[in-house]
Design a protein around this nucleic acid. Structure first.
Lengths: 253, 253
DNA sequence: TCATTTTCGTTCATAAATATTCAAATTTAT
DNA sequence: ATAAATTTGAATATTTATGAACGAAAATGA
């Protein structure tokens, strides 16, 4: 007689490999009775390991507990890392309290910050906070209603929390920078948050890869004259899409 | 007769090498009785070195496991899921605004909440918030200083955010419930948060697997007379460790 | 639709594993 | 060295896992 747990492991593997299978198959596989298999399947369903269907069991590929995928699989990933590393190395100093905006580019800054001692990260991004903690960095989280697409905390309460603090520097993400130098993002609530992040910071840095240059979105939260734009190398047409007197930091990849 | 600690080391190594093994094997390996092996396994499980299964023991160290599987190897994981499911099915209703405390047992409630329409989750746990979002649930995050061990947001700002809300129900984790019925946790800051969670809720539920019964920690945040305790089935000695008039919900696994 | 077949849930007896208790042995502290 | 505390193994009580039996529910096919 096999150990119960070993049998369950066998069942889980078999169901996952076959996507769908019958109770009989599992009886043969494990040399046990139907009763036992049914009991196993009930328990495993309760644990969310499989899904029971009439006649057998079905696999459930459940990635929903994982750290969300859109952080790992996003466009321009290498450029974003380069920009993030540059921003940390040049603009983050020991002992700083810095705000890191929710977003994929700013998220990439976190691992590099471990090299700078005694930094405290304030963020409204859930993944950013989690990553920061996992790197052993002191972390302050801004709360509020969390947007289901960007996972950013927004709203009145979030605004008030930010306005009660002052940061050495803020690192802000952006969806578009238009020809007037307006910094834009689709959601007005997120725009309000970004505006506050910039206001409360001694220095404000906007991180934007080239795909953002020349784009416009609904909500304007500031203008590049008030911030430093950190981006990768721009070609001529991209430079023409921006105002002449930009405070630009071009990262050489 | 072998040194106790040496025997435990042997057991740990053997379990890790074999991934899963029976009690008899360990008896032969160490030339001791079943009683001793069982006692060892109980202690080692409490230390998180192994996981006990009916008939033997299982390794908790497997580097090929993904994130969701790591959660499954927490102590008393199955009991936590059973308690969480029961709490959701019995105490969460359509349209509710509910507070879910940071913690592993309360975390397990989230997947079950998808079956109840239009629930809004308020939480101070980062992982809980992320899981909630990934399941498409409306999520409000409490911000504050995030503790690096429990990943719970705490502090004055967090307290104020909680006190500005009212919940249909709060589901609170606990580290110990002592013989006076005091609900305890090691960190006073977390205790303050839990206290507020309970105060702001129409109904307060404390989720506690059996390992918490009879334990005491530094900070007391409330007493069981003010809450409903949801736990799995208690044996006699555990019941004796609690006051007589407990508002108890025992989950049958 | 109805009858047939298959699958499912429940119950029960049995066997295996676990928990509990207690006395003896061992270790630790004074 | 002696008492107290801890650890151990065996005995016994309790819990859990299993397989078979049987009626209920669901799928199948005419």
């Amino acid at each position: 007689m096999m150990l119960t747990q070993k049998r369950r492991n066998l069942i889980e593997r078999y169901v996952n490999q076959h996507e769908l299978c019958r109770v009989n198959e599992l009886c043969k596989l494990t040399s046990t009775s139907e009763s036992t298999i049914r009991r196993d399947l009930i328990q495993m369903e309760n644990q969310g390991l499989i899904k029971r269907v009439h006649g057998g069991a079905q696999s459930v590929k459940n990635f929903s507990r994982d750290v969300s995928q859109h952080i790992r699989f996003n466009i321009n990933h290498d450029a974003k890392i380069a920009i993030a590393r540059y921003a940390v190395q040049k603009f983050v100093h020991a002992g700083d309290y810095i705000f890191i905006d929710a977003g994929t580019t700013t998220y990439e800054m976190v691992p590099f910050i471990t090299k700078i001692p005694h930094v405290t990260i304030i963020t409204n991004g859930i993944e950013t906070a989690l990553c920061s903690l996992n790197h052993g960095i002191e972390t302050l989280l801004i709360g509020g209603k969390v947007k289901d697409d960007t996972h950013a905390a927004v709203g009145q309460s979030a605004l008030e929390q930010i306005k009660a603090m002052n940061f050495a520097a803020s690192f802000v993400g952006v969806n578009g920078i238009d020809y007037n130098g307006n910094l834009t993002t689709p959601d007005p609530e997120e725009a309000a948050i970004k505006k506050a992040e910039i206001t409360q910071a001694g220095h404000a840095y906007v991180l934007a890869d080239t795909s953002k240059i020349g784009e416009r979105n609904f909500a304007v939260f500031d203008n590049i004259k008030d911030v430093v734009v950190v981006t990768n190398r721009l070609n001529l047409s991209q430079k023409k899409a921006l105002p002449a007197k930009v405070n630009l930091e071009e990262v050489q990849e």
